[in-house]
């Protein structure tokens, strides 16, 4: 009996492991967003270390994007949402999920300071209630649109 159980459960455990590995592999392949424009001083802080992005580089959930007094950058998310970040800004991608097959959507960006322009993509069309753009003072809910925001 015990032997039978083992035989049944080992493949299940392997399957589960394979699924976990697959899921993380898919995740690694699809960053939340990619840089399109970068000029002046721009850095990305990821897991405690800082790097200078070039166009094409990924921006991941948890990353903090910072621009200097002359810095600005534009990023394009998987669903086509675009954000431009102006000089002297700090912005963090808190959460991003765009999985239409599972109807799983989340977009949460926090701007500590600075200026940004937001232009909505497919995510805001499919699930407007899933989109939040926050600053220390306010939260902006989006109904498919373009807006500008400054936190000072």
């Amino acid at each position: 009996m015990r032997t039978t159980r083992l035989i049944v459960h080992v493949p299940l455990a392997l399957l589960a492991l394979a699924l976990v590995l697959c899921a993380s592999a898919t995740w690694a392949e699809a960053p939340a967003a990619n840089f399109r424009t970068v000029s002046g001083a721009v850095t990305v802080e990821r897991a405690g270390s800082s790097s200078v992005p070039v166009p094409g580089d990924p921006l991941l959930v948890g990353d903090i994007l910072r621009t200097g007094p002359d810095g600005k950058a534009g990023v394009s998310f998987q669903d086509g949402t675009r954000i431009a970040v102006g000089p002297g800004s700090e912005l963090k991608v808190q959460s991003y999920r765009f999985v239409p097959l599972e109807k799983d959507y989340d977009f949460d960006v926090y701007m500590q300071r600075g200026e940004a322009a937001y232009s909505s993509g497919r995510l805001a069309r499919l699930a407007p209630e899933a989109v939040r753009f926050r600053t220390p003072q306010a939260a902006v809910g989006v109904r498919g649109t373009r807006f500008l925001i400054r936190a000072e």
């Binding site: 399109r36 424009t37 000029s39 600005k72 950058a73 534009g74 990023v75 394009s76 086509g80 675009r82 431009a84 970040v85 102006g86 000089p87 200026e115 940004a116 322009a117 232009s119 993509g121 500008l148 400054r150």
Partner: peptide, 12 residues
């Protein structure tokens, strides 16, 4: 916002 908007990527 002029310089910020100038950094906006082109539409998909």
């Amino acid at each position: 916002f002029g310089s910020t908007v100038a950094a906006m990527p082109e539409p998909p």
